[in-house]
């Protein structure tokens, strides 16, 4: 592969998008050869952790293809996929990567030409963006945040919160939901950045300056991380305590 060629990984659901890609083939619709396809049974199977890991391992773009709303072979899988991908996009943004590098499309089994068209378009878009650039630390933090239960609950429960309300019967508006998602994603991402930093002992102030965060924000995260026994106090250096991660929490 030539230097300037961009790398794309696609996760396609068996019943619609994969079949659409087959039809593009049978009908000989040509499209750029940049994407490597992975077959899954349902777009709902695609875990945000896997998406982010794909970027971490060098993909310049990730494509998810599912059935049109209402066509899902498993009834609702594609609906959940949409929420998960939205979550992954928010995390990408946090890690400084253009969310446009991740694309979800509904392609039916009869849309061979459209599949080819989408491929051309997406490849162009990724070429436009160029090879992916990110700090490894930041992408890793995004990955671990996606594996964390709080964001996973939120991604799955979004529909319920929007339509049926929470335990108190409060129904969220789209705007409120967006704010909640942004806040939670920021919190989790910051916490995971701190956790990764603490592979070696550091003080609140050191972390704050390295991550460009306010010390009180860092301190709050430190308390939380301690409470969940993810980090522990290491030693007191010049009257300031330093902390270190307890177990090696790597990606995957």
């Amino acid at each position: 592969m030539k230097e300037e060629e961009v790398k794309i990984v696609g996760f396609l659901c068996n019943w619609c998008c994969y079949a659409g890609a087959d039809l593009a083939g049978v009908s000989r619709f040509q499209y750029p050869p940049n994407m490597r396809i992975i077959r899954v049974m349902c777009s709902g199977r695609v875990d945000p952790v896997i998406i982010l890991d794909t970027f971490l391992w060098g993909a310049d773009g990730v494509f998810i293809g599912g059935c049109h709303p209402g066509d899902c072979h498993y009834l609702q899988g594609n609906y959940y996929a949409e929420k998960k991908i939205d979550m992954a996009k928010r995390l990408l943004k946090k890690a400084g990567v253009e969310p446009g590098r991740l694309r979800l499309e509904w392609v039916s089994a009869s849309e061979g030409e459209r599949f080819a068209g989408v491929m051309k378009e997406f490849t162009e878009e990724i070429k436009e963006l160029g090879p992916i650039k990110f700090e490894k630390d930041e992408m890793e933090a995004a990955c671990i945040a996606a594996a964390d239960y709080s964001l996973r609950i939120l991604a799955t429960k979004e529909k319920e919160l929007l339509e049926e309300g929470n335990k108190y019967g409060e129904v969220f508006t789209r705007h409120e939901m967006d704010r909640l998602l942004d806040d939670m994603v920021r919190e989790e991402y910051e916490a995971k950045r701190i956790l990764l930093k603490l592979k070696r002992p550091m003080s609140v102030k050191e972390i704050a300056s390295e991550l460009n965060l306010k010390p009180n924000v860092v301190f709050r995260h430190i308390l939380d991380l301690k409470r969940y026994e993810l980090i522990e106090a290491h030693e007191i250096r010049d009257n300031t305590p330093t902390y270190i991660a307890k177990v090696e929490e790597g990606v995957e």
Binding site: V40, M41, C42, G44, R45, V46, D47, P48, V49, H73, Y74, Q76, G77, Y80, K84, A147, Y149, R152, I153, A155, T156
Partner: peptide, 11 residues
């Protein structure tokens, strides 16, 4: 379908 897998909060 695997939707439960990608949703499970503890993986």
């Amino acid at each position: 379908c695997g939707t439960c897998g990608s949703s499970c909060i503890k993986r």
